[in-house]
């Protein structure tokens, strides 16, 4: 399981950077750029299919081949991670300050916006 981690990240970065759905061979070409030991076509395909199974990537027909596109943008994904982290998971007590205990996602979104604003503009003096 573990060895797919960096590959999944590489494939996702590639799909996020593209402005259109990509074929496996497009992804392969970009992922292998600057790589010492190039990845096999089937490896990239396996990783892309795993991502699709996890609901992170959509597949669509492009002629005879299948094109892959990210389900949501990188920014949206980061936001989803943050909201997820703020949501009230039982063993997530250890969020440094549990400042968003069991808030619904709309509230959490507002909270995140506010946090981002404050963090960017708050004076450093205590």
């Amino acid at each position: 399981m573990g060895e797919f981690g960096p590959l999944e990240q590489a494939v996702m970065e590639c799909l996020w950077a593209a402005s259109r759905p990509l074929l496996i061979r497009d992804v392969l070409e970009q992922v292998n750029r600057g790589r010492e030991r190039p990845l096999a076509y089937t490896t990239v395909q396996t990783v892309a299919d795993r991502l699709a199974r996890k609901g992170l990537v959509t597949r669509s027909r492009a002629g005879a081949a299948i094109a892959y596109a990210p389900m949501r943008s990188r920014e949206e994904h980061v936001l989803a991670v943050m909201l997820d982290a703020l949501s009230d998971l039982p063993d997530r007590g250890p969020v440094l300050a549990r400042f968003a205990e069991s808030v619904d996602s709309q509230d959490a979104q507002r909270l995140l916006d506010a946090l981002a604003d404050r963090s960017a503009s708050a004076p450093d003096a205590e």
Binding site: A97, F99, V103, D107, A114, L115, S119
Partner: peptide, 21 residues
């Protein structure tokens, strides 16, 4: 953390968590 935890809209849980902080 406290600085960031009182958004303008106000959250139901903020009072309690603010108190904890």
């Amino acid at each position: 953390l406290g600085l960031g935890s009182s958004p303008p809209g106000g959250l139901a849980a903020t009072g309690e968590t603010r108190q904890l902080l």
